[in-house]
Write a protein that binds this DNA or RNA. Structure first.
Ligand SMILES: [Zn+2]
Ligand SMILES: [Zn+2]
Ligand SMILES: [Zn+2]
Ligand SMILES: [Zn+2]
Lengths: 157, 157
DNA sequence: AGGGGAAGTGTTATACTATATCATCCGCTG
DNA sequence: CAGCGGATGATATAGTATAACACTTCCCCT
């Protein structure tokens, strides 16, 4: 999802799952049932879900599950780049560009809670040059913005 | 602290406290004892402290205190811009430029946990233009990077 | 001085987020 | 089928944050 526009979401889900399958196969890793189901739950919407939201959905569909199951699955999916963690929300969102190397940035709507993943390269911005200037070795960056998405901008007073 | 270099830290503390006093006076707000003490604790180091770290220090100096006291003080200090929240760490750090309008970015050393506040303007970077392009109304941005500071870069194997 | 409202604090309880630990199971390889 | 490593089950606990309500303090107005 490059912005907040409607799109072929079924295809969106299918291609993300396919990318995850391929990525795991290529790296000799297993997209187990639990991991796959957690990814599917996150893919259902372009919103960030808390680990316990995911847990609730697993339980709602009849799977007994405990927090560690969810956190293990999320850790795996994040490590493989199929899911991103949203630090501002302590929550998780499915990657909109699985497979491609990318350093994502996020636009988070505070009204509808939609999350859009934008393709940026933070290490090439001012932070990167500032880091280089001070001798800081960048390893991971978080770039998140909160505000109102185009859809909610009109709806809210 | 613009980078990880040594500096006149006593002066650093004094000027930050003075800026907080002035800012409160100018806005008709009260820098109460609790708020001031929490700010002082954060100013002691250029590191991010968790709310419960602050709580422990308050208690260590003989003040009975409960979590809400600390969170209220932190909320106030963050709202006034005297303290910043570090989302990646669920922790708080004293502002290095109190008084000045700024949209801060942070470099966080994963070895010594020092936090440097860098002056950047995220809304002018690619995220800003991407947001504008999609009609997203930016309200707050988080820009944080983790890595190794110059001091720890050599020290770690 | 006294009344009264807003802001701040005290206190208890609880919600939400995340991990440690150890036992067990499953899938693969030799 | 024995053995190994990764994955899951299960229980407990650690760490982060807020709700709710009582009480106090400050400040302004009379
Ligand atoms: Zn979609
Ligand atoms: Zn929205
Ligand atoms: Zn200093
Ligand atoms: Zn360091």
């Amino acid at each position: 999802m490059i912005d907040f526009a409607p799109h072929d979401h079924d295809g969106c889900i299918a291609s993300a799952l396919a990318a995850a399958e391929e990525g795991c196969a290529a790296r000799g890793l297993r997209l187990t049932d639990a991991r796959r189901r957690v990814l599917e739950i996150l893919l259902e919407s372009h919103r960030a879900l808390g680990a316990y939201d995911v847990l609730d959905r697993l339980r709602a569909e009849g799977r007994p599950a405990q927090p560690p199951l969810v956190y293990r699955a999320l850790d795996f999916l994040v490590a493989q780049g199929f899911v991103h963690r949203i630090e501002r929300l302590n929550a998780f969102v499915a990657c909109a560009r699985p497979g491609a190397e990318h350093a994502p940035a996020f636009l988070i709507c505070r009204a509808c809670e939609a999350v859009a993943e934008m393709p940026v390269a933070p290490e090439e911005g001012r932070l990167g040059s500032a880091a280089r200037a001070t001798g800081f070795a960048l390893e991971a960056t978080t770039l998140e913005a909160e505000g109102l998405c185009p859809n909610c901008r009109g709806a809210v007073a």
